[in-house]
């Protein structure tokens, strides 16, 4: 480990500190420490997950790295260290508000409810809750889940959508929580649970990396809409402005199409699977008109 480097970065940063335009909030913190802490997920394929060398990669991670570049340029830092911190659906918000990460790049639904705690960059993906089942289980519709066991990833919007549906239709589903998407899918794979409600795109990628993808079906109407956004701390306008501007620039320049194609329409690590998932109209519209509205403020599958 090189201990001299952070000290050098600090000195360098101090030497070129801009006298005017004093940064505050997260930007100041990044400037002072020379480090940006990016929260990533373990198994949100292809948004934020670990490759075969256990490095965080993905669509969201790529966009966050662009943001880190923009911050480095804005702060005129000679070097900006990117530190990755693993988070889960349960820990992401407390860790962000507590300051252990500056920005979360994963598969987090932007909701007005969550906006009471955190802020979001413009939506960068549009998805919604469906369920994955084993074809052999004979589940065709949500009603077929009556009295069955359903696994969910704790802390997700999908958990809430499925529970609300269960209450409304009085299905008497037996719920079991799990820590992350891989673990949840495993419960379906091993037969412990018959279904796993999750954002459909994540279900497609989980199915694609399964041992026998043909064994699974992704079914149902959307139980919820889930526009994804990069998450950051609330009430930090200068930081949010920079993040938003970076994302918008990627959208306007068309660079986003390349990043999208890299993760959704080409083979991706670790197994070289191609998800073959063309860009939805909803996302195309969002790229034309970037916004950070929460799901409650959006229409059905559009924002």
């Amino acid at each position: 480990m090189n201990f001299a480097r952070p000290a050098f970065v600090l000195l360098a940063a101090a030497a070129i500190a801009l006298p005017a335009a004093a940064q505050e909030g997260t930007l100041k913190k990044i400037k002072d420490t020379g480090v940006i802490k990016i929260g990533h997920r373990d198994a949100s394929i292809p948004f934020s997950y670990l490759d075969d060398k256990q490095q965080p990669i993905g669509y969201g991670v790529d966009i966050c790295l662009k943001i880190a570049d923009a911050i480095k340029a804005e702060l005129k830092l000679p070097k900006l260290k990117v530190e990755f911190v693993p988070v889960t659906s349960q820990t992401r918000i407390p860790i962000l508000t507590g300051g252990n990460i500056d920005i979360e790049c994963g598969s987090t639904t932007n909701s007005v409810e969550r906006q009471k705690q955190v802020a979001f960059a413009p939506t960068y993906f549009m998805t919604g809750t469906k369920i994955i089942v084993k074809k052999s289980a004979g589940i065709k519709r949500y009603e077929d889940l009556k009295g069955k066991t359903v696994v969910f990833t704790a802390g997700t919007t999908n958990e809430r959508a499925m529970k609300a549906y269960n209450d409304a239709k009085k299905l008497g589903i037996n719920f079991i929580p799990s820590k992350d998407h891989a673990e949840s899918f495993l419960a379906v794979e091993t037969g412990r649970a018959v279904a796993f409600p999750m954002d459909d795109i994540l279900l497609y990628s989980l199915r694609a990396s399964a041992k026998n993808p043909a064994d699974y079906a992704i079914i149902g109407e959307f139980l919820s809409d889930d526009p994804y956004g990069i998450m950051m701390r609330k009430d930090d306008p200068t930081f949010k402005k920079l993040v938003d501007a970076t994302v918008t620039r990627l959208y306007k320049s068309g660079e986003i199409n390349k990043i999208y194609a890299k993760w959704f329409q080409a083979p991706i690590p670790p197994k070289g699977i191609n998800l073959g998932f063309p860009m939805s109209d909803a996302l195309k519209a969002l790229i034309k008109n970037p916004n950070d509205k929460g799901v409650e403020a959006c229409g059905k599958m559009k924002c």
Partner: peptide
Amino acid sequence: VPLAMKRLSGDAYATGIGP
């Protein structure tokens, strides 16, 4: 603890102490 530290130090953007 991170939240408590933030409140104590009065700095809303206090550097988290890390996992």
